[in-house]
């Protein structure tokens, strides 16, 4: 799993490339924690090159969502594939995010 972070103005785009499984989540989590308070703008989670997500990955993005809301920003999830969409559906995550 590779994560690319880009800042455009106040907005932050976080692009996930590959599988966000339990092993990858443990590596990515500290990097995501460091984002906390990085922006008061919106956060775009770019899933267009994410192929898989497990519950550990869901926990990471829920934390991002909670932190962003606390800072007054929105979180948008962009480009998820059908498999990830079905995981979002099974866990009630579809209702938590703006999906593009």
């Amino acid at each position: 799993m590779e994560v690319k972070i880009e800042k455009t103005g106040e907005d932050l785009t976080v692009k996930f490339i590959g599988r966000l499984d339990t092993a990858a989540s443990q590596e990515v989590a500290p990097q995501m924690n460091a984002l906390k308070g990085e922006t008061s703008g919106n956060i775009i989670l770019d899933f267009s090159q994410m192929t898989y997500i497990s519950s550990s990955g869901l926990r990471i993005i829920l934390t991002i969502r909670k932190d962003a809301t606390a800072n007054g920003g929105r979180v948008v999830v962009r480009g998820m594939n059908d498999g990830i969409r079905s995981v979002f559906m099974m866990t009630g995550f579809l209702n938590l995010f703006e999906i593009e």
């Binding site: 519950s55 934390t63 099974m90």
Partner: peptide, 8 residues
């Protein structure tokens, strides 16, 4: 945030 794994 907990309990999602077994839920899945």
């Amino acid at each position: 945030v907990g309990g999602l794994g077994i839920h899945l």
